[in-house]
């Protein structure tokens, strides 16, 4: 077992190996994501019972909660990739960093948007400056903006990757402090805000939520692997194996298995 993991770790040093290995994973994850998200969303929007307090408007939970949870997971994954990149200089970690930032940014923005839409009927306002989770999600969005902007402005790709790695790690260390401070602030200010009452959810309400959450994680896997494979192709475009792979694709004889020589 230990040896297997060790071999896997060393193999991850080769972008080419990753590119080939992940081709089936990409499609399976994509398919699974589509199935789960469709099931969960359909179940949640049509069959789940309406909430006794919020009525139909609570159904946006099936989009909102998975989005925000995965958006936070993406930042955690960014910090871990950054650590791997700085410590082991693994090229693949840089590819992963680059692939994950726009996805995480989009999810965070979507999470804020769906939260605002949900807040309107429930709290009577799109935005509430005294809610800790809103504020820390907004700050998360700015952290993503920073990572994106830093990569854009550093000229060499390698430097950009390592710069983003440092920023992602510093950000990850900072997130608990930011969260705590924001909670501190809102409990001091807390007045008449209506917080979402903690209702014990019946199973027919939370099972679709779990399905959507799982689907969102599969989507994360699918999007990141697809973007990573594209990025690997772009970075290794001068190599013979990419040329061979492209040729195989064109002649439609490669069958996904590539012989580099």
């Amino acid at each position: 077992m230990k040896d297997m993991l060790k071999r896997l770790w060393h193999r991850l040093g080769s972008p080419r190996w990753f590119f080939q290995m992940m081709a089936p994973w990409q499609w399976w994850l994509g398919l699974l994501a589509a199935l789960l998200l469709l099931t969960g969303t359909f179940w949640g929007l049509v069959y789940a019972p309406a909430d006794y307090q919020q009525g139909e408007s609570f159904r946006i939970i099936y989009v909102h909660v998975p989005t925000v949870i995965v958006a936070q997971s993406v930042y955690m994954a960014l910090g871990i990739s950054g650590f791997v990149l700085l410590v082991w200089r693994m090229k693949l970690a840089d590819v992963a960093l680059k692939a994950m930032v726009p996805f995480g940014m989009a999810l965070t923005a979507l999470g804020l948007f769906t939260g605002a839409v949900w807040g309107r009927p429930t709290w009577g306002t799109y935005w509430e400056w005294t809610d800790a989770r809103l504020i820390s999600t907004l700050i998360l969005l700015f952290l993503y903006f920073g990572l994106y902007a830093l990569r854009e402005s550093l000229s060499s790709a390698e430097a950009a990757g390592r710069g983003c790695a440092i920023l992602a790690i510093v950000g990850l260390v900072n997130i608990p402090v930011i969260k705590y401070s924001v909670e501190w602030w809102t409990t001091l200010h807390q007045g008449e805000t209506i917080t979402l009452t903690r209702i014990r959810m019946p199973p027919e309400m939370y099972i679709p939520l779990l399905i959507n959450l799982l689907g969102m994680y599969c989507l994360f896997g699918y999007v990141v692997i697809a973007r990573m494979r594209n990025e690997i192709l772009r970075r290794e475009r001068e190599t013979t194996w990419v040329a061979a792979w492209l040729r195989g694709k064109k002649d439609d004889v490669g069958n996904g298995v590539i012989d580099g020589h």
Partner: peptide, 15 residues
């Protein structure tokens, strides 16, 4: 860029 990178991390100090 500096402000964009650093200011979100300084939110706790501000608060």
């Amino acid at each position: 860029l500096l402000a964009l990178l650093v200011l979100p991390m300084l939110v706790p100090v501000l608060i």
